[in-house]
Design a binder for these strands. Structure first.
Lengths: 340, 340
DNA sequence: CTGAAAGCGCTAACAT
DNA sequence: ATGTTAGCGCTTTCAG
């Protein structure tokens, strides 16, 4: 016997089986099941009946090979634990749901070589398009994407050189804008709390933009505190305690994420600090779950839902362009910064 | 020309191209690229060289059709926005990363017919296994899974009749156990806050188990408050305000999720209520991000990471069993219940 | 409206 | 250690 899956007892059901059961040709079954071409109502009914009676599930592998059409869209993101990505995926899903396309998700774990691998695996399934988070990829990955011959969209970030199309915000600008807002509100002794990992390129860019923005206002970072590990209220709280112990006269803290900022907020409130008078706080992302904290954290909406939608639209339109769609993050002052 | 992708300019590269470039047969290229059989080092090098020079990406569709082997594992979950599922996925990923298998994620949006569809689509790619959240599926979905001829593992929940294998906790028991803990700690006027949707079967089971547990202790639910929409601090806060306004003498609140419980906690603290003396609070899930709230919320670890791991192990072992792996949720008293 | 033939790109099995 | 042959299950194309 030829190479069946060794674990598969019964051979899989084929179009042939349905065709025999319905007394028609394989071709007719194929047409009925795909709603293609003209088939008489009587034949159609018989075929549908036979297919459902037998519990036939088509083999898309064979179909894809024969038609050279695969209704899958690869989506490569760093991680699912970071709450930003499910939001992007939701945006992608909303758009693709109206098409025959289906997203297939892969995670790179913030590792370039792992990402290369995931992209390679995905491309080997010949998807109809590929959405990849970020603009930083190794050479091999960039080469694969450039030669894939399908729509490729890099998302989240526009600060860099895309392989093809690109939908995102400028994180450098986001950081700079936040610095401007803070400076305009009179804060002067400013600290930064974020990740020590250099692998989150977008957080790095925000930080750089932030420092640039401060410099343009004649300010600088008075202190910063970095953590290894994942963001969380505990992490934010810990960083805040540390930085304020070391540099007690800080009057503003900018966090890499709202999650950490929330931990900082809780810490400051517990210590009875006057927010936003004595000290101001701001994060990044705008997470809906956090609405309901004692104060709304100043943040910037990262537009991730819109980014997902726009990227999916490009794929759905089979856009082989190198268009760059630059969305604007929106500053949300919340309650943790003084009014301007 | 035959049915190429209409948008694909250049025809795709095949083994033939690599074989020609390396001056060997297609078969040899195939063997080299899959590390199969004996190939001389010299030939191997030449083939690898040619493949990488040309930027060859194999066509897994053709490979899968020929070998009847697909290294994909379908994973069907209700949603990615609910933080529990990324944790299950992480567990699955950890295990599958050590195998050639790759998870493919699909979401059912808590809708049975949508789920049926997603399962159908996945099975049509002939994956090596399927992991599906929950035990509630429509007839068609159950039939497909029963006949798929691949390892099927239903996860999260064990209260019901699995199609095949099953890894999870008993949510009914989880609810009952929580009721026992609460009763043992002397709380008597107990309220429940959760979702009004009946689609989250596991939350429903916890609530039922909770009521049973209360009944066994001679107690009952004094009030309950349901919300439509997504959980969040704001939601938890709102429910808590509402239920305490309506029934001010409640001395305990059980929430469907830690997220909502956190909102309730913040509300109660703001109101200056004595926790856990005047009122106790408990949630469900044990989310790491929440460590760092002013108090640790009493909760139950839902074992979702372990569930993901065990499920993936069953798939990796190609277990065509109907084994039920019942894990035990762990009660974590935190700071929001009195000591027993 | 339906069917027959050919072949998608790859791999199992069998040479050599 | 390498090559040859014959499909995998489906869809395209062309013929009725």
């Amino acid at each position: 016997m030829r190479g069946r899956n060794p674990f598969d007892g019964k051979p899989q059901m084929t179009l042939r089986d349905v065709a025999d059961a319905a007394g028609v040709s394989e071709m007719t079954v194929s047409r009925v099941l795909r709603n293609r071409g003209d088939v008489s109502d009587k034949t159609r009914e018989r075929v549908f009946g036979a297919a459902r009676r037998l519990g036939y599930v088509p083999n898309k592998i064979a179909g894809a090979l024969a038609s050279n059409r695969v209704n899958l869209v690869g989506v490569v993101i760093p991680s699912l634990s970071n709450m930003v990505f499910p939001d992007v995926l939701a945006g992608i899903g909303e758009v693709l749901d109206k098409t025959p396309l289906q997203p297939v998700i892969g995670t790179s774990q913030y590792d370039d070589d792992h990402e290369e691998n995931v992209i390679y695996e995905m491309l080997s399934w010949r998807p109809s398009g590929l959405i990849v988070a970020g603009l930083e990829h190794n050479e091999a990955a960039r080469a694969m994407m450039a030669n894939a011959g399908i729509p490729i969209v890099e998302v989240m970030d526009v600060d860099g050189t895309p392989v093809a199309a690109c939908v995102g915000i400028s994180h450098t600008e986001a950081g700079r804008q936040m610095a401007r807002e803070i400076a305009a509100r009179g804060y002067r002794r400013i600290g930064y709390c974020g990740s020590s990992s250099t692998r989150d390129h977008r957080a790095q860019k925000r930080r750089q933009g932030f420092e640039q923005g401060l410099a343009e206002a004649g300010l600088g970072l008075a202190d910063s505190c970095l953590y290894a590990g994942s963001s969380g209220f505990g992490t934010g709280r810990g960083m805040t305690e540390e930085i304020l112990t070391r540099t007690p006269d800080l009057d503003f803290l900018y966090y890499n994420s709202d999650i950490n900022a929330a931990g900082g907020l809780l810490y400051c409130l517990e210590k009875g600090m006057d927010i936003p008078g004595r000290i101001g706080l701001a994060g990044f992302n705008s997470f809906e779950v956090l609405d309901g904290l004692p104060m709304r954290i100043a943040t910037m909406d990262s537009q991730r839902h819109a980014i997902g939608r726009r990227a999916a639209e490009l794929i759905a339109a089979n856009a082989l362009t190198d268009e760059v769609v630059r969305l604007d993050p929106v500053f949300l002052p919340g309650d943790t910064v003084r009014s301007a």
